[in-house]
Amino acid sequence: MIIRRYLDFIWLSLFWASGLLILLVLSAMLAYLIWRGGPALSLEFLTASPRGIPLGAQGGVYPAIKGTFYLVLIAVVTAGIPGIITAIYLTEYGMQSSLKEIVNLTVQCMAGIPSIITGLFVYAFLVVQLKWGMCLMAGGIALGIMVLPVIVLTTRDAFLAVDNNYRWLGASLGVSRGYMFLRVILPQSVPAVLSGLLLAMGYAAGATAPIMVTAAVISSNSSGAWFEPVMALPYHLYILFSEHTSMDKAYGTALLLVLLLLVVNIIALWIRSWQGRDFHNDFRPK
């Protein structure tokens, strides 16, 4: 008995220690970023283009914010549509099919592809072969390929979380799967799907490797034209510190990026907490 109690104590301490460690790592990083990057954050930093010699030593990161926004938008649209449709197939239609297993496996494998390889592939295929050049569209698609498995998996789990008895009930009433999905399953899972999409956006916003060779450049006004290169926050950050352009600006950019991701994640969690509210009134056919 005594030994068991000691063991329990040791386990509990381990849990606490691990939890504290995670908290410590996060807060240490955040504190350091605020300390080093806080002073750089200003209205000008957020609204001006980079200036100075070398470029970026002065001015702001506005084009990079804009570029990242466009890249993420394209990524989430290009990956969201096939991602959600795949998830619908996996949960609603692929019940007895062996194709489902293959799709599942493919998605798992995709999630394991290093993002630099995705970048390389998009570079070779779209940028070089199709002669798109480095551009917003190529970068957005590269990010889309990267977040596709994330979207498929979060969306699939969102649909799976809906009470399976609804599906059985629908079937027993002779109601088609599509109707059941639109009337019951989808309205129930909207919050989880949205929060999954937001998490994917956060993931895409922070990724550097896929855009390094496909879209991001040191200087651009990030007009949003599909076939023009753009600036992006993570790539800008990479340039600032790897070229020792300005460490202050680099930390400022890093802090900005982390704060953006934090906000996106908090919104995602908040949306997730809507789960369980009744959405039926909003989705009822008129």
Partner: peptide, 14 residues
């Protein structure tokens, strides 16, 4: 041929 389950299911609607 209707079927009523052991556990009644309330669809999430009125």
């Amino acid at each position: 041929i209707g079927l009523v389950f052991q556990q009644p299911v309330a669809l999430p609607m009125s």
